[in-house]
Structures are given as structure tokens and as C-alpha cells.
Amino acid sequence: MIQDDLVPQHRKLVSSYTLVDRIFRRVITTGGLFSLVILGLIGAFLLYRGFEIFSDFGFSFITGEVWNIGDPMDTSTAVLGIGAMLMGSVITSVIAIVIAVPCAIAVALFIEYYSPKRLRLILTAVLDLVAAIPSVIFGIWGYAVLLPIIEDWSVPLERWLDFIPIFSVPSGIFGRSPFLAGVLLALMVIPIVTSVAREVYSQAPRDLIDASYALGGTRWGAIRNVVIPFGRSGLVGGAMLGLGRALGETVAVYLTLNLVFDINFRILGSAGGNVASLIATKFGEATEYELKALMAAGLVLFLVTLLVNFMASFIVNRSRKIL
């Protein structure tokens, strides 16, 4: 009898939230979903403003090479297409990525496996700092410092590599070319790709590297057979992040590339453009109809970069999960 009293009764466990908590959770959830709402609104509003353009031109808005408002009073005379600009975005970004990825691999490997520890700490901080340099400063530097150098170099490059179509320049006008914009974008993208690559490389399994040394392998042998295969998917994700940044860059490209509505594969020649710099250039004196076209161009750019970024974060997240 006494013992029965001593055995405590089971407490009743409450698993529902109190009123305060329910309000708290509701408020935080609303706030948390805000970013989803903004993304949706961006797409919806640009589509709403640019819908007229899509219904007028259909698919030829994306493929067309001509940008001509025609008679400002009569919108039916306008012929608008962003094909050349879209192609320009792709060309400059591809140049940027082709240059940036090998450089980023080298810098990441140098920081993680070649530099002494103190230098490594300094360099990781420098990397963050360089990633934060505003694009307008890259632009003004590219215009003042890089432009003369690339202009000088384009002449011999064209002479030596003339037989490859993309390097020949029949017009003989160099200077503000897709190549210059691509090199500048590469410099802007390198810190982003490098910091992703460095993070992945630093997590390469130490025991496998040591095992590789124990078998008599060299440092490069360990890097080639352990570190680089281990970091491959992370690197692809980082490169995609960089690609997204390069596709959407405005000011640096605006300052270093002549806007010409013509698909220009001759990367040393002074003609090109990208969608973002098209918007920045035409925005100031745009007619109402042209403004709608710019909104539509913005929507295309938004969707393209969103797609690239989705893929990038998918790949990066997956490679993090494996680690």
C-alpha cells in the first residue's frame, strides 16, 4: 500500500504549443516565406509589364538580332529582339569561366596545399576581401588599366591566330571587345569559384592523402589522385555560381564592351554586349514600348540566372551532403 503511493503517477505530457508560441511561430513563418514571395513577385511583375512584347514578337524576341524602335508614335513598326545580347552574355561568360576555373583550381590548391599556415589564413581573408570589391571598381579599372593592355595584345594575337575564325578581326577595330569583358569578368568570378573550391579541397580525406604519400607518391600525385577527384562536383557547383554572376553583371560589362546589335563570335573585335548592359544603356531614353521590351529582357535574364543558380546550389548542396 505504501509502495503504491511512492510510485509516481505518469505526468500528463503536453505536446501542443502555448498561445504565445503559436503566434510566434505564425509570425516567423510569414517572415521566413518572404523571400519566396519576393522571388515570385519579381517574376510576376516583369512578366506582367513585358507580356505585350512576348505576345507581339513571340519567340523571335529571344532569337532576333535587331533592336529598332522604328517610329516612336507607332509601336507596330518596332522590331525588337535580344538574340545578339543573349549570345553576348553567353560568349563573355564562357570566356570568363574558361579563364577562371583553371586559375581558381590553382589558387585553391596553392592556398590549401602549398602555402605555409600563416599565409593560408591571410590568403583566405584576402579572398573574401577581393570578392567584395564592387563591380563598378572592377569596371573603372578594366577601362583605365586593362583596356590598353588587351588592345595592344589583341593585334599580335590576331596576326598569329588569324586562321581560327573566332580570333580573326576583319574590321581591324580592337579595344572594347568581348575578350576584354570576359577577362574582366574572369577576375571578378575567380574569388567566388576559388572560395568554393578551397572549401571542398580542404575537406579531402587526410588519410587517403597520407596513404598516397606512404606509397611513395609525390605531392602532385596525391593532389591528382585524391584531392581533385574528391572536389570535382563541388568545383562544378562553384563554376556554376560564377557563371550566374558573370551572366548578370552590368556595370563592368557596360564600361568595357561596345554595344552592337550583331551576334559577334570574333571575340577580339570591338562589338558585343550583354542583356544586363542592354538594359542599363537603353533605360535612360527608352520609349514606353521599349521599356516594356526591357522588362521582358529582364525577365529572360532573371529566368536564365535563376536556372543556373538552381543547378549550382543543387550541385553544391549534394557535394556537401557527401562530405
Binding site: L39, A276, G298, L301, F302, T305, L306
Partner: peptide
């Protein structure tokens, strides 16, 4: 939310400007 916040950090800055202008 996590995924879309990551994607949002890649929205080109000019698109953000265009959105605010259009609204």
C-alpha cells in the same frame, strides 16, 4: 526557403532594380 534564399542571392542586381522600377 533555404534553397530559394540561395537562389535569390544570385538574382542579377539589375533585375532587382528593374523589379523595383516596375512596381
Amino acid at each position: 526557403v533555404r534553397f530559394f534564399t540561395q537562389a535569390m542571392s544570385g538574382v542579377p542586381s539589375i533585375v532587382a532594380g528593374l523589379f523595383i522600377y516596375s512596381t
